[in-house]
Design a protein around this nucleic acid. Structure first.
Length: 873
DNA sequence: GCGGACTGCTTACCT
DNA sequence: ACAGGTAAGCAGTCCGCG
């Protein structure tokens, strides 16, 4: 009998192995091909892949002017390889298995710069005939050698790095060669950068390579959004796409070229009267009926082949595998189906497939590109479209199987349209964002939408290593050489100390100025030259160069840190060039484009520090991350001291912000200038609050901006899992308190608050508040059986649901109420209003209101007191 | 056997 | 599946107490 712990450990190991496997090259076998001309007009690189049949890297290009896809196959003889420190002669004698490997091609000797050890190294390059001979199989060459470098890089990415191909940029085929198309740089940009970096040739040179990526336009690439509806005999059962047992009853198609079409399967017993068509929601949608599903799919394949980009919502795991397997069942041969199915993704032979479900699930996209607009919601097309473009799916009261033709057509087309619209709204914002991020990260768009930010930044930096002839270090070597961290995190289980949060004084403060260190961590990284190779570098001389005495880490100043250079450059270009151009460019269309550029840059800048401290990141370097946060703490605390010295009154600060109460504006200016001079990083006035109510708790305040807008931070009344009634009470009280204009109002307003609270109290006691307003909504983050340490309330409720046959999975939001019963909770589906425990909800009322009342120095009890007496009198 | 003090787990938030 | 810091609620444990 095995113990739980061993099982858990084994599970973890299995997960890691899966992750590794996913990194391996999956060879694409392409049977439907585009033309391969010797010369083409400027075309955009859609993706780079490895064509297993041809045995070569393949670049897929799209020519937006002539609406054509071109294939360019490698003709430089580039092959997959790895690097090893085993000498060629030793390979022959001691590692003959490598030479005898069926995939072995030849050996080369290469010289590289090893940034970790700051030395030149001579290594053996083992070249293979195909990617799987390098790695990915149990007997790959990688497994035969004691030590290898760069052997885990997927071949198509390796090809991109070596040939300096930037996905999403313009290239043309010229006499069979793939050449970049020069991009014109506006003189205002050129001049500005020249001035900015007049004393910094490294940055100036690097900026020249990057600016074209941002100046090249993103064309409105033709694309087709697809959504299918499948007959389902049972309600609430999603058909299995591998089995594809049921008919595809319709296919919704929406193209950026104006195509609006639904293919519909005629089914027995279903009639369509001509007048029914009057109920079509969209009169310009073309409807085509088919007697055979086979013919319908054939028509679909014909249309699909006319588009370089396919857009779906969850097409990787549902629509495309379903269509594929259904087509096989109906008698199509593999080569006739223009869909390629892999383990976790689906692609198309001529172009690329973008699964928006995957894209919107990328954390960095959710947080930095969309400002958390759909945070904490479920990730359906309906919620995401609603949150981002304010459009919903059509509501339905029956399954698609029970819909009339017209209902089906309306429903199906809307879904396809929504998927397309998510890429076209706001001047193709999402398409532009994807393409720009592909350029920055050197990640093909189809990879980009399926990977997290750590993979993007990895690709970005690997590319820079190769371009410079640097050896890409082995992750274990970085950890071995850089050693341990020197600080302790406050939070148990974290690796090193992070940000500093100042203790706020409770109270009401009029006229509060909020200063903000603009992208604090990236600025610190640039200013102190932080990079995995510069922090704790091997150079003895550098050991005296410790940026802060409290930390033993030193930094090399002789050579420019790669991370410092790239992150610093991206930060500068965003702050000084593209944020400005987004406001000042003459042409509104250009302003909108520059705004996407600055958003794309923001995603990378904001995540650049985080990856340094993330152990899944291949250039993971804890001391570098630790030094970054330590310097940020140092900068903020020194700034507080200086503010006090100047007679300013800092009342709060968190990580990179400083709240100053009613400052003398000259002193404030002096502080800002001091910071820039002292640290060489910028601090700016972020906002001015007419009034701030500090509850006395950290990360917890209400501010009123000059336009009257409320900034509510961290308060319980705002949290997603707070019952609606408590949120309402909170909002009403905040609103009442915000009407206080002068001291004279205070008593009157407090009296209003008192009666408001009393009203809620009575309603709770009389059970007049409906169940849905009492419901607590908590996310289940793990499978039920993984809650081994204790059983939180939402898990108790989820268990009750499970016992009744409901399916409960991680990510589900459990909605429950607190009851007087034994368990103390009931899922809302099972609860009655008379079972709820009013006392528990009075506690909710208390906490959510206390946080705001504290700021006004009002005791919750003093507000409640009379109401309790009322109740019993 | 019960309640208060305490610790640890869990979730949602802030920067 | 980019980081650490904070608030809050609850589960579970320990300890004292005739």
């Amino acid at each position: 009998m095995r113990t739980k712990n061993i099982e858990e450990e084994e599970e973890e190991v299995e997960e890691e192995e899966e992750f590794e496997e996913a990194e391996e090259e999956e060879e694409e076998e392409i049977s439907i091909k585009a033309e391969t001309p010797q010369n083409t007009p400027p075309s955009i690189v859609l993706t780079v892949t490895y064509d297993g049949k041809v045995g070569k890297a393949l670049v897929k290009l799209y020519d937006p002017v002539n609406d054509r896809v071109y294939f360019w196959y490698d003709n430089t003889g580039h092959r997959p390889y790895l690097l090893t420190n085993v000498k060629p002669e030793e390979l022959v004698t001691k590692f003959a298995k490598v030479i005898l490997h069926p995939g072995f091609s030849h050996l080369e000797v290469v010289e590289k710069y090893d940034p970790l050890n700051d030395t030149k190294v001579v290594l053996t390059k083992v070249v293979a005939k195909d990617p799987l001979s390098i790695g990915g199989r149990a007997d790959s060459i990688r497994e035969l050698l004691p030590k290898t470098w760069e052997s885990r890089i997927r071949y198509h990415l390796c090809y991109i790095y070596d040939n300096e191909i930037v996905p999403g940029m313009f290239y043309k085929i010229e006499d069979g060669r793939l050449v970049p198309v020069p991009i014109e740089i506006p003189s205002e940009v050129e001049d500005f950068v020249k001035k900015l970096y007049s004393n910094d040739p490294d940055f100036l040179e690097e900026s020249r390579r990057w600016i074209p990526l941002f100046q090249a336009p993103v064309p409105n690439i033709k694309r087709l959004a697809v959504d299918i509806e499948v007959f389902t005999p049972q309600e609430n059962r999603i058909p299995n796409p591998r089995e594809a047992s049921y008919e595809i009853i319709s296919i919704g198609l929406a193209g950026s070229d104006g195509l609006r079409k639904v293919l519909v399967l005629r089914r027995p017993g279903m009639e369509l009267k001509p007048e029914d068509l009057d109920d079509l929601m969209y009169d310009d949608v073309e409807v085509e009926f088919f007697d055979s599903e086979y013919e319908m799919l054939r028509e679909f394949f014909t249309i699909l082949l006319q588009y370089p980009i396919l857009i779906t919502f969850n097409g990787d795991n549902f629509d495309l595998p379903y269509i594929y397997h259904r087509a096989l069942k109906l008698g199509f041969r593999k080569e006739e189906i223009p869909i390629i199915i892999r383990r976790n993704e689906a692609s198309i032979p001529l172009g690329i497939h973008i699964d928006l479900y995957k894209f919107f699930n990328i954390r960095a996209i959710e947080v930095y590109a969309f400002g958390g607009k759909y945070r904490g919601m479920d990730r359906t097309l309906d919620t995401i479209a609603n949150a981002i473009v304010g459009m919903s799916k059509l509501s339905r009261d029956k399954t698609v199987s029970h819909m009339s033709y017209v209902e089906l057509i309306n429903y199906n087309f809307r879904d396809a349209f929504l998927a397309l619209y998510l890429t076209t709204y706001d001047n193709n914002l999402v398409l532009r964002l994807i393409m720009l991020m592909s350029r920055i990260s050197k990640t093909p768009p189809d990879d980009l939408v399926r990977s997290q930010i750590s993979a993007w930044i990895r690709n970005m930096l690997y590319y820079e290593h190769r371009r410079r002839g640097w050896l890409i270090p082995d992750k274990e070597d970085i950890i071995k050489i850089k050693g341990d961290v020197a600080t302790k995190a406050i939070i148990k289980g974290k690796k090193y100390a992070g940000a500093i949060v100042l203790d706020p004084m409770p109270g009401i403060y009029p006229n509060v100025f909020v200063l903000d260190f603009a992208s604090m961590y990236p600025s610190v990284i640039k200013r102190w030259n932080i990079s995995y190779e510069t922090v704790k570098c091997p150079d003895e001389k550098a050991k005296n160069n410790r940026p802060i005495p409290e930390l033993p880490h030193w930094v090399c100043n002789d050579r420019r840190g790669l991370t410092a250079l790239i992150v610093g450059l991206l930060r500068d270009l965003r702050a000084y060039v593209y944020k400005k151009l987004a406001k000042t460019a003459q042409d509104p269309a250009l302003r909108s484009y520059y705004n996407v550029v600055q958003s794309a840059l923001k995603v990378f800048i904001n995540a650049s520090y985080g990856v340094l401290g993330a152990d899944i990141f291949p250039l993971y370097c804890p001391p570098a991350a630790e030094l970054t946060t330590a310097l940020a703490r140092y900068v903020l605390s020194r700034t507080v001291l200086k503010a006090l010295e100047l007679g300013l009154v800092p009342i709060y600060g968190d990580t990179d912000s400083l709240f100053i109460w009613n400052p003398d504006e000259n002193k404030l200016k002096e502080l800002i200038e001091w910071v820039e001079k002292e640290f060489g990083i910028e601090i700016e006035l972020d906002k001015v609050y007419r009034l701030v109510a500090m509850s006395g708790r950290k990360k917890n305040y209400v501010g009123i901006l000059s336009d009257g807008e409320l900034d509510i931070k961290g308060l319980v009344g705002k949290k997603r899992n707070t019952p609606d009634f408590a949120k309402e009470a909170f909002n009403e009280v905040v609103h009442l308190l915000s009407t206080i204009k002068s001291l004279d109002d205070v008593n009157k307003v407090i009296e209003e608050v008192r009666s408001k609270v009393r009203e809620y109290y009575k309603k709770l006691q009389r059970r007049e508040i409906p169940l849905n307003k009492l419901a607590i909504r908590t996310t289940l983050t793990k499978p039920l059986e993984a809650y081994t340490k204790n059983t939180p309330q939402h898990v108790k409720a989820a268990l009750q649901l499970k016992n009744l046959g409901y399916k409960v999975e991680p990510g589900d939001v459990i909605t429950y109420v607190k009851t007087t019963g034994k368990e103390g909770v009931k899922p809302i589906q099972l609860a009655r209003i008379d079972e709820v425990d009013p006392n528990k909800y009075i506690e909710y009322l208390r906490t959510s209101l206390e946080q705001v009342l504290d700021a006004f120095g009002i005791e919750f009890e003093s507000v409640m007191g009379s109401s309790i007496i009322d109740n019993y009198s």
